[in-house]
Amino acid sequence: MRVERRGPTGKALADGSLWLAGGLLALLAAAALVSGEVPFTPARLRAAIAGEDELAATILWQIRLPRLLVAALVGAGLASSGLVMQAYFRNHLASPGLLGVSSGGAAGAVIAIAAGAASLSLWFLPLAAIAGAFLATAAVLGLARGGVGTERLLLAGVALNALLGAVTSHVLTSHASLYERNGQILFWLLGGLEDRTWEHVVVAAPIAALAALLWPLGRPMDLLSLGVDEARSLGVDVRRLRWAMVGLSTLLTALATAVAGTVGFVGLVVPHVLRLLVGPEHRRLVPLSLVGGAAFVVGCDLLGRSAGGLRLGVVTALVGAPYFLWLLRRTER
């Protein structure tokens, strides 16, 4: 006899969850495309797609669609990156923002911009962000060595965020005369999606490929999240898995940061909410965090735009920070 796996509601929710998240993403994406300073009526949207209304077509294809795609990729990248970090550190509070990996990416990006390298090639900026993010990851791994305790991990993140913030501030002040560059630097630090073009979509596109590599890691991540030695004795190639997890989560955060600056709390809030809804199994959480993360950031951007131009990083912080504090309180008990 087979024992029923879970209650009927839980099962239905879990099985339909990906469709639900996908539907939500589609809805938010549609809203993002038609709303803005120039709202589209259905007729105008049709005209824009058909190319009959030139202004509407430009807004749709050159402004809103790239922005939407960058938002979705950034959300998918950050949320899945946070999910992987939480499994790696076996800690609900691990995430790219809190651990300083995002700040590392931003510091790398800012240095590349300040040095003028970013204007030489489209790929210098993301490469610098990747280098910065990996340095930050290496530092966290070193600081939190052996210990996965919340306190130690978060303190390592605090120290790293402060240090990388100082690096960025230094670069910022030593280039104070260059107003144009400073504008760019500020953009990376606050996190935003203003003026995103197809170039940024191209830079963020590898997020989709990296996400595909995460797919088969769901089951071994389940085992690892319950203990390293236990996972090893159950047949998980822990060394390889951990390298893959560190590499993928850092790359995902770096690419997201390279196109949108430091956008906080996505990697913390999305995986956590999803875990509350469908349980901790990573086979389910990996695809869900990609779709759910995309929906979250597209939604936050929409919210910010309709609130009169709040930057994405500000909106995610407004949503995420209270949630984080609540989570911290709950964890302590």
């Binding site: 796996r5 879970r6 076996r90 800690n91 609900h92 389940d222 999240s225 319950l226 203990g227 030695d229 236990e230 090893r232 004795s233 159950l234 047949g235 998980v236 190639d237 822990v238 390889r240 875990r275 349980g279 901790p280 199994e281």
Partner: peptide, 23 residues
């Protein structure tokens, strides 16, 4: 190989701590 090790020997720790709420 890792998988074969998992099929040959099983080990349990003295004290289990579970950080995530798997069933």
């Amino acid at each position: 190989p890792a998988l074969e090790r998992g099929r040959r020997a099983a080990w349990t720790p003295a004290e289990a701590r579970f950080e995530f709420g798997f069933t």
